[in-house]
Nucleic acid binder design. Structure first.
Length: 558
DNA sequence: TCTGACACCTA
DNA sequence: CTAGGTGTCAG
């Protein structure tokens, strides 16, 4: 109850207020929005807009509840939706300009976790990042008025632990902490041509960070899911605490499903065992929570901001990893149905992440290609893809840091999941930051389209191909552009320093660390700042990427 | 730890 | 009605 509606309501309100506030209010750093606005570059009109775009996390209150307890997201072979779903309220867009909205989920740090003693603890180093995949909102590309008209929902996004996932779902490793990010890419005509710059912004809401699991570890989280997710209604007691209980106890039979009852009982016994005494069964969240959560939550939360930061990252991961995998379809393939399939692409290892910041503004990279091909898919469903290889778009980014929630433009840097990591990643790895590449002309369009299902689809295939990248594709791609996502890395620290995004190829070379770019280097951790958003513009022509870290305006280049 | 089947529920 | 999203449990 609370959750949904409330959230909705709240959100709206929140959104705005939050946006600003949010950042602040929230524990995080906020720096928020403010930053955003300012920067933008004067130069391009469009660009300006991007910077002015504000994004508010919908149902932030609900997200916070989960965050405090240490959000967990189930990942399955078939793909599982995130529960608090990722929905945002967007304002500040140019009503007539077209934008592509997409999300990616990058590692929040490079640790592997275990849930012991009701707490999440670091249990080693993270596995190599997977190919980052992007989930393009099904409505993309669409005008600013479309996006601002209502909440933008990414609820259909699915998470999987199947590294060979054929559906385009976002691939994650279990027991690792991740941070979802939202990217807004301009798909305007103007941008289309190479010369133009395509701008994009990244928004990060730290309260959406989560640890991926194959089964819930923290009972509190389970309870929050049951109580707030409509599809888990069957596991609710009644709302009233008693009722639930009563049901459990009393009614097993007819009324309530046996299973439920059992489950509850069982669970209570088993899991809770002693603890339950209280009322866990009922579904009351509270009960457990006290125990469990306390710590965990804290833990988690801390992590966010800090974690990321703190995490030191360790080291690099293997550079070698590239994942490009080609995906085979799994058996499941059949599932694929429609939409899904196509959309995603992966990025192989690629990832480079570098970002170029403005300082180094445009870098041009050679292009890589984007692998995306257009397929035809139908409409727009969301698509996911990974960046494959190469791509690098050229874009410049600026980073600003915004506050907590999201925002701003310079993002990549801001987020970085693994600070160093990224870097490393860059090297070999997989993670990719989101890079957008755009081909020139088509760029935008392409961008869009690529995302689009059809395109995506193609893209997807590319995966297979991808492994390596194809030039050809690239060429084609070139026409379209696509963003790639790399997640990772980029970010944070890098942000500060610009990393270069590079192409994978390049990237591959790149040194892991920082370098790059940009002018500014920032220490990795800087990101403590953690700006939530960042914006970039891409320039495309070649696929250059640029990311500007600094917020500053970006001028893109031009 | 993870997977698949299951009942229950939403849409 | 069907299709599909839930957590749970057995394995």
């Amino acid at each position: 109850m609370l959750q949904e509606k409330a959230s909705a309501v709240i959100d709206d309100h929140v959104t705005r207020s939050q946006a600003r506030e949010g950042t602040q209010s929230v524990p995080n750093p906020s720096h928020l929005a403010v930053a955003v606005t300012s920067n933008i570059p004067s130069g391009n009109e469009a660009d300006q807009n991007i910077e002015n775009i504000k994004v508010v996390l919908h149902e932030r209150e609900l997200w916070k509840k989960f965050h405090e307890a240490g959000t967990e997201m189930i990942i399955t072979k078939a793909g599982r939706r995130m529960f608090p779903s990722y929905k945002v309220k967007v304002t500040g867009m140019n009503p007539k300009t077209k934008y592509i909205l997409l999300t990616d989920i990058v590692p929040a740090d490079d640790h592997r976790y275990k849930f012991c003693d009701n707490k999440w603890m670091v249990a080693g180093k993270a596995e190599p990042a997977m190919p980052g995949r992007l989930y393009v909102h099904p409505d993309s590309p669409a005008t600013g008025s479309h996006w601002m008209r209502q909440l933008v929902s990414f609820q259909k996004l699915k998470l999987t632990n199947n590294h060979l996932d054929p559906f385009g779902h976002i691939i994650l490793n279990s027991m690792h902490k991740y941070q979802p990010r939202l990217h807004i890419v301009k798909a305007d005509e103007n941008n289309a041509f190479g010369s133009k710059n395509t701008a994009y912004c990244t928004h990060v809401f730290h309260e959406t960070a989560f640890i991926s699991v194959t089964s819930y570890q923290n009972h509190k989280i389970t309870q929050l899911k049951i109580e707030n997710n409509p599809f888990a209604k069957g596991f609710r007691g009644s709302e009233e605490g008693d009722l639930r209980v009563s049901r459990l106890q009393g009614k097993d039979y007819p009324v309530i499903s046996k299973n439920m009852v059992r489950q509850r009982l069982i669970s209570s016994h088993g899991h809770l065992a002693g603890k339950l005494g209280t009322g866990v069964l009922t579904g009351q969240p509270q009960v457990l929570s006290s125990y469990q959560y306390t710590d965990p939550g804290a833990h988690f939360s801390n992590s966010d901001p800090q974690d990321l930061l703190s995490s030191s990252f360790p080291q690099s991961r293997d550079p070698g990893l590239l994942y490009h995998r080609f995906k085979h379809r799994a058996d499941n393939a059949r599932h694929l149905e429609l939409g899904c399939k196509r959309p995603y692409l992966e990025t192989p290892a690629a990832v480079s992440e570098e970002h170029y910041f403005r300082s180094a503004p445009s870098y041009e990279s050679p292009l890589l290609s984007h692998p995306y091909c257009p397929d035809a898919m139908s409409s727009r469903e969301a698509c996911m893809y990974g960046g494959t290889e190469a791509e690098a778009g050229s874009g410049t980014v600026e980073v600003e840091e915004l506050s907590s929630p999201s925002l701003n433009c310079n993002m990549w840097a801001s987020m970085q999941p693994y600070p160093r990591y990224s870097v490393q990643t860059v090297e070999g790895v997989a993670y990719q930051p989101f890079a957008a590449h755009f081909a020139n002309a088509a760029t935008v369009a392409s961008v869009v389209s690529p995302h689009c299902p059809a395109a995506v689809a193609m893209a997807a295939r590319p995966q297979a191909d991808l492994g390596v990248y194809n030039p050809a594709a690239a060429a084609a791609a070139a026409q379209r552009a696509l963003p790639v996502a790399h997640s990772s890395s980029s970010t944070s620290s890098s942000s500060s320093s610009p990393t270069v995004p590079g192409l994978r190829e390049r990237s591959s070379h790149q040194s892991p660390y920082p370098r790059k770019s940009g002018s500014p280097l920032r220490p990795p951790r800087d990101f403590s700042v953690y700006p939530p958003q960042s914006c970039m513009s891409i320039r495309d022509a070649s696929y250059q990427y640029q990311m500007g870290l600094s917020s500053t305006g970006t001028h893109w280049g031009d």
